[in-house]
Computed example of a mutant assay.
Amino acid sequence: MSLDSPKVLYVTCAENGLHGLGQLTKAGIDVAAVVTIPPALGTKYAVSGYVDVSPWCLAHGLNCIRLREYKIEVSDVEAVDFDLLIVNGWNRLIPSEVFSLARLGALGIHAGHPPLGLGRAPLVWSIIHGQSDIEVFVFRLTANADDGDIMATQVVEITEHDDVKTLYEKVMDVGADLFLAAIRKLSAGEAGFSQDRRFLSHFPKRTEADGLIDFAMTDRQICDFVRAQVPPYPGAFTYLGSEKWKVLRVQRYDRFLFRDHPRVPGRILRVLPSGVIVQTGAAPVWIRHATVDGTDIDPMSRPEIVGRRFGVDLD
């Protein structure tokens, strides 16, 4: 970066933001201050992938502004001398009064297929919907969510081996490079390209309750549903009577075996040393890893569950 590169006010409270912050400082970007929230607020608002960035800032001599609430006001940052606001890992809209303080405005990052898929949990929704790729893009912030002019973009593949954690890391890694590219463009006076607002669509917010598995879905859909919600997200789950099973790993079992059995979604067909075989609306799935109250389930210690059904049994 040139000596006249902008002074950055950086906003984050998540793992991807800390990674990006490290990459920007390595590249020589002048970070005037970092805005974040303390662990108590990360817990209060159940921030996925929350990281306390304060120790890192202290170790690297950066001014760290810890907010008293999960929102930024002008009074929190007006004393900071900055040219550009960067938001990376922050699930709240930034008031226009805040980013209007910056000479070059503000940059954010999102992933989807702009202008489709703006809004909440884009990685989760993209895997649930069976997408094979996702577009990571850095854009100029507006008063709305994720709809500003795009400054830099990169398509990332979603392979059959990816879950939301590995996809999160891919996007995290690409994002740091995209912010650097966008800063170069801004410093050179280049403009981005606008999103076609006629076709804007937004993903809705997800809550922990949205992780309930519907075994009437196909085996492929259930595998996508589970891998889309592994930690740091709340996770997919089901109930066996009053027992809540958090499902962390599942795979398609076999499209030939059990094809002559009555297709009763949720019925447990077999218990094997590596997991539980469950009927879906199509072929069975193999639950390879599940927990109850945080403890791993040993399937061979539960042979009595064969013939029961997830989601409908009553104790």
Rank of each mutant, 00 (worst) to 15 (best):
Ser242Leu: 08
Arg227Gly: 01
Gly175Lys: 06
Leu180Arg: 12
Asp260Phe: 14
Gly266Met: 11
Arg263Ile: 15
Leu186Lys: 10
Leu240Trp: 11
Phe256Lys: 12
Arg227Gln: 04
Pro234Asn: 07
Gly211Ile: 12
Gln154Ala: 11
Lys165Asp: 03
Leu248Asn: 10
Leu200Trp: 07
Ala152Met: 08
Leu240Pro: 02
Arg255Lys: 13
Ala152Pro: 01
Thr207Lys: 11
Glu135Val: 15
Glu243Leu: 15
Tyr168Ser: 10
Tyr239Pro: 00
Glu169Met: 14
Lys165Val: 02
Tyr168Arg: 09
Ala152Gln: 06
Arg267Phe: 00
Gly192Glu: 03
Leu212Asn: 03
Gly241Trp: 08
Arg197Glu: 10
Val156Ile: 15
Ala191Leu: 12
Asp149His: 03
Leu186Arg: 07
Ser194Pro: 09
Phe137Ser: 05
Ala191His: 12
Val171Thr: 10
Ala143Ile: 11
Val226Cys: 04
Leu178Lys: 08
Asp254Asn: 15
Val271Tyr: 01
Gly148Trp: 04
Leu212Arg: 14
Glu190Asn: 05
Arg255Val: 13
Ile213Ser: 03
Gly211Ala: 06
Ala143Lys: 15
Arg198Thr: 14
Gly189Thr: 10
Lys205Gln: 10
Leu141His: 03
Val174His: 02
His202Gly: 00
Ala209Ile: 11
Gly235His: 05
Thr218Lys: 04
Val271Met: 07
Arg184Val: 13
Asp214Gln: 09
Cys223Pro: 00
Val155Met: 07
Ser187Pro: 00
Met151Gly: 01
Asp254Leu: 09
Phe199Pro: 00
Phe225Gln: 04
Gly266Ser: 09
Arg249Asn: 04
Leu167Cys: 03
Lys185Val: 04
Ile134His: 02
Phe225Trp: 11
Phe139Ala: 02
Met151Asp: 00
Glu160Met: 10
Leu240Ile: 11
Phe199Tyr: 14
Thr207Leu: 07
Ser132Tyr: 01
Asp214Tyr: 08
Ile222Gly: 01
Val230Trp: 08
Leu200Asn: 05
Lys244Trp: 11
Phe179Asn: 02
Thr159Tyr: 09
Thr142Val: 04
Pro232Gln: 11
Met151Leu: 14
Ala191Tyr: 06
Glu243Cys: 12
Ile150Gly: 01
Ala191Ile: 13
Glu208Tyr: 07
Gly211Met: 10
Val171Glu: 05
Gly189Cys: 07
Asp224Lys: 10
Val138Arg: 05
Arg255Cys: 07
Thr159Met: 06
Arg220Asn: 05
Arg270His: 11
Lys185Leu: 10
Gln131His: 14
Ala176Trp: 13
Asp146His: 03
Met217Trp: 12
Lys246Asp: 09
Gln131Met: 12
Ile134Asp: 00
Glu157Val: 13
Leu269Cys: 03
Pro204Asp: 10
Asp177Arg: 15
Val138Glu: 01
Pro234Ile: 09
Ala236Thr: 04
Ile158Tyr: 05
Gly211Thr: 09
Asp196Arg: 13
Arg140Lys: 15
Tyr239Trp: 15
Arg198Lys: 14
Ser194Glu: 10
Ser201Ile: 13
Thr238Ser: 15
Asp133Ser: 15
Leu186Gly: 03
Val171Asn: 03
Ala188Glu: 09
Arg206Pro: 00
Arg140Ala: 10
Glu243Thr: 15
Asp149Cys: 04
Asp224Cys: 13
Arg249Cys: 02
Phe137Tyr: 14
Ile150Tyr: 05
His161Met: 08
Ala216Thr: 14
Gln195Tyr: 05
Val247Gln: 02
Leu178Ser: 06
Gly148Ile: 12
Ser187Thr: 15
Glu243Ala: 11
Ala209Asn: 10
Gln195Thr: 08
Asp173Met: 13
